[in-house]
Nucleic acid binder design. Sequence first.
DNA 1: TTGTACGCGTTATCAT
DNA 2: ATGATAACGCGTACAA
Lengths: 338, 338
Amino acid sequence: MKKKTTIYDIAAKLNLTAATVSRALNDNKKISENTRKLVKQTALEMNYEQNTLARALKSGKSFNVGVIVPRMDSNFFASVIRGIEEELYPQGYHVIICQTHDQESLETGNINSLLNAQVDGVLMSISNSKANGKVFDSLFQKQVPLIFFDRKRDMEGISSVTIDDFDGAYTATKHLIDQGCKRIVHLSNNRSLEIFRDRYAGYKQALLDHGLEFDENLVIESASKIDEGRRITKEFLEMEHRPDGIFSSSDFTALGAIQEIKAHGLKIPQDICVVGFSNEPFTRFMDLSISSVDQSPIEMGRLTAQVFLEEVNNKKKLKTQKKIVLKPELVIRKSSQR
Amino acid sequence: MKKKTTIYDIAAKLNLTAATVSRALNDNKKISENTRKLVKQTALEMNYEQNTLARALKSGKSFNVGVIVPRMDSNFFASVIRGIEEELYPQGYHVIICQTHDQESLETGNINSLLNAQVDGVLMSISNSKANGKVFDSLFQKQVPLIFFDRKRDMEGISSVTIDDFDGAYTATKHLIDQGCKRIVHLSNNRSLEIFRDRYAGYKQALLDHGLEFDENLVIESASKIDEGRRITKEFLEMEHRPDGIFSSSDFTALGAIQEIKAHGLKIPQDICVVGFSNEPFTRFMDLSISSVDQSPIEMGRLTAQVFLEEVNNKKKLKTQKKIVLKPELVIRKSSQR
DNA sequence: TTGTACGCGTTATCAT
DNA sequence: ATGATAACGCGTACAA
């Protein structure tokens, strides 16, 4: 049982030709019912398994797709990937996961790497839109479908699956206003990314729509890290007019903010209300559970995969660019419920 | 720029033969320095890129390795994978990640899937050792290197990278004893897995070595989930002699235990000390930070990858089975420091 | 040092 | 309905 059995082996055994066997196995119409059954039967007996590599070489399809995320040890991305897998595995695809760790060089490197592995498509969440578009050109030229999820860049002809970040931010901010907050800080993030620009815009609009003053000084940008949340919060807690609400575009900075607020001896939600973004699991199981905006990541993954499948199966037709936008859901917990 | 350029194209352009081009590109010794440079130069100009699939078909190597984990949205596994990637990417390998979600059927399915994708090796952390070994047989027959990390099964000739779970458990339990705990509960997990058997054994030995009674009733087995931790803890909090220490083989059950203890109005660490296992990030950033045993996951990943590389490069020689055991480190935090 | 010729396992295009 | 043959792109033993 050392060598794998090929279609030649089974052809020899049946006094047939490899071509016939191939056809029978692939349910070609022009093959007799008899031989089809016979072939499939003996294929089973001989433990035949299709050589993916050979098929790939012949067809130009590798049945691998690349997924690029900033990192995968966040529940959000891990869940998106899970959704993608659920949709793709049954179709015989495999998923190659790459992480960029928010480094532009890795982003470029990963795409080239995947291209080199001859993936049939790339599903990605970009880390940085300042990156020049050259990398995407190579995907374009090779006709490799590219689909963005969550963190996209607006590109002609490229599909994407995102959530309505504006709406999520607007709802969260309005919720804070409803709780009586008058001076609401926004912990933002790299606004070269659409999602953070949109959350910023939603926050701003909610303030304006409800007669609150918008103050640029109450918006602070940082990385999505606990420590950053602490550092920033420390600053504005020492302001003259102390804020009484925080809308953070990240659960991690929200957590940092909460820690710092407590360290200052202030009460949540009595003194300050806090809402985060992403609905990471820990927001639920903290003693002081954290309100957050859920992004239905599994659904997002599934949809992304579906869009990919459509594109890859329609290659002949015109590329139908699709922009799917999901509706986020605010989950209200202790950190903002007075 | 539609078709990819092949070695034939560049051979034609230079009035050479594809074979020569192939050799030049692969730095074959028996090629003149001139043509080597010339070939490489024009290859660059013509945007040549090697067809991985063809090379794979010819050489039998796909330069893909499969990594199978129970789940990847735990920091531990995500970090191990990161370590693996750091080691493997520079060598031109890609990583295909599969999750079993602790389901045996998925474990089998994933292996077959990976085999079908013709991976050059499988690095895995098993979810369940009751599974029959048939799946592994197919790996064996196909000479595909298999390496276990963290959750292994003892198999002849198979290498593994693990931590010394006995030691970790022993140290953690001794720490609890040092804090004055007299009646220590062990929240265990599926003991068909070595790691949980070893942690159990380490706990037991620590008790015996320090003159404490070992009571089987204080050991409870459950899944690594917060809710399970709560449920179990509720039970023993109502015991006659209430325990005053908990050593949990999972950070998640430890967290559940802590929640339940607080719900009962008891104080940590005054009334009960708690130590978890894995050093998940949340153990550090909880208000009541949780003591835990660190498993240096990135290091574990790197070592696993290294062992794989050794095996795959030594195929001719005898398989040198390697069992690497890392030393865990107890991180003491508020939940157990009196 | 370079060319020739073949095989890797499939599938597609001719025939028959 | 089935067979013969070529082709996918690369690497390599053998020849020259």
